[in-house]
Write a protein that binds this DNA or RNA. Structure first.
Lengths: 221, 221
DNA sequence: CTCTGATTCAAACGATCGTTTGAACTATGC
DNA sequence: GCATAGTTCAAACGATCGTTTGAATCAGAG
């Protein structure tokens, strides 16, 4: 099969840059692993959707897990870059407040859902799903990408909340990570009884306000 | 094989009441589904650990999914009973505050981890895991058990927070569900960089304080 | 045009999956 | 002791899994 395959495997009236097999595999892997989790997604499901031969996974990546690792690294890179840029900027201007830090950490993750179209939502769901996969081995793929910048944010939050115990700030911090992952994976809708939640466009503001209140007033001294 | 099998499949010096095959399957299913998720857990892994024949699953439950359904119903029953009892009690005494409602909802779930020994922690992890399984079909097994009492709690929270928009209270509520599930499944430790969190014995108090602050001050009007 | 490296292919492998089946065993009632 | 229902067993099935293999195709350099 020639490399010239229209994006998404379907003809469209505007010819878009052709994805390589490797890129199609990564794109579909993100989508399917996000939807079904690692164990609930087979290589055959991925390769069929990517219009690729099943052996292509082993050729380009080495194994199923290596495909996942590559997808996680690719997905996390821009989010971590943006978090790092914003933290550098904040720290250059003085000691950031808890709200500034929470915002700088949360917004890059939620922008995926809210501002990057369908692809952004796919990436966000993928990241949220892998961050809390049942298997520690899989979660470690996420941790490897995120721990350095996350440790910096935790340290900065501690400085921003001098009246709270360091362990309490750490407690708040992992709650923030957990909630962010759940929102990224769009796992928190609908509410019990099917009641609508808030306007999705305001998710970032609502989550940030929720977290800021919890950090400012809900951590022990 | 006779029915007289010591608990846990190992000899011990004190003979405990003999579990039936059905009970051993449910106990091991809770543990293994909690650790690995539904798709990451095979029937053979469960039946080997339960010292049972693989056909016993189909005989007692009908299918792998039916085994899971039975385990979820069994695990949720006491938690929901306690939540219902506490809500009835609160409403009999007047209009409960947000803190009282959060406490009445969260404590039964966390008591599993904190006060019911190893078995309680296994059940908590199981519930937390299934509540946010990637597959909607699996999550619905949890929803079927919990939606009625959860809908009552949401309604009561709205009464307790008259200055917050109803959708905002619903937003807070699903965040509470998500955080509770993460803590039950013990998915939020350790913190980035391996920093220790709070004293596990204080998890309930810490989580409740965190949530109360978020509900009281972090929801939009 | 030829050669070489990159890439894709169809087919197959061994392993494991969930489910089914007929036989054997156990417990209980008469 | 016998009959019956409940329960467990070993074995097998068809399907799917991730990985491997040798062949074929494609792209690019000389």
């Amino acid at each position: 099969m020639p490399a010239r395959v229209v994006a998404g495997g379907k003809e469209n009236s505007v010819e878009t840059p052709v994805e390589s097999t490797r890129e199609r595999l990564l794109n579909v892997a993100e989508q399917r692993f996000g939807e079904g989790g690692y164990e609930g997604t087979s290589l055959r499901a991925i390769t069929v959707a990517a219009a690729a031969n099943i052996a292509a996974v082993n050729y380009h990546f080495g194994s199923k897990e290596a495909l996942l690792r590559a997808a996680v690294a690719r997905a996390m890179a821009p989010v971590n870059t943006e978090r790092r840029r914003r933290l550098d900027q904040l720290e250059a201007a003085g000691t950031p407040s808890a709200e500034q830090l929470i915002r700088a950490f949360v917004e890059p993750g939620l922008d995926l859902v809210l501002r990057r179209g369908e692809r952004g939502a796919v990436v966000a769901r993928f990241i949220g799903r892998i961050a809390f996969d049942p298997s520690q081995r899989i979660r470690e793929l996420y941790v490897a990408e995120s721990d350095p910048i996350e440790a910096r944010y935790l340290a900065a939050l501690r400085l921003a909340l001098p009246h709270s115990a360091p362990e309490a700030v750490a407690f708040g911090y992992v709650n923030m990570l957990g909630l962010l992952a759940l929102h990224q994976s769009q796992a928190l809708t609908p509410a019990p009884g099917g009641v609508e939640l808030e306007d999705p466009g305001k998710l970032a503001e609502n989550l940030i306000a929720f977290l800021v209140a919890a950090f400012d007033r809900g951590l022990r001294a």
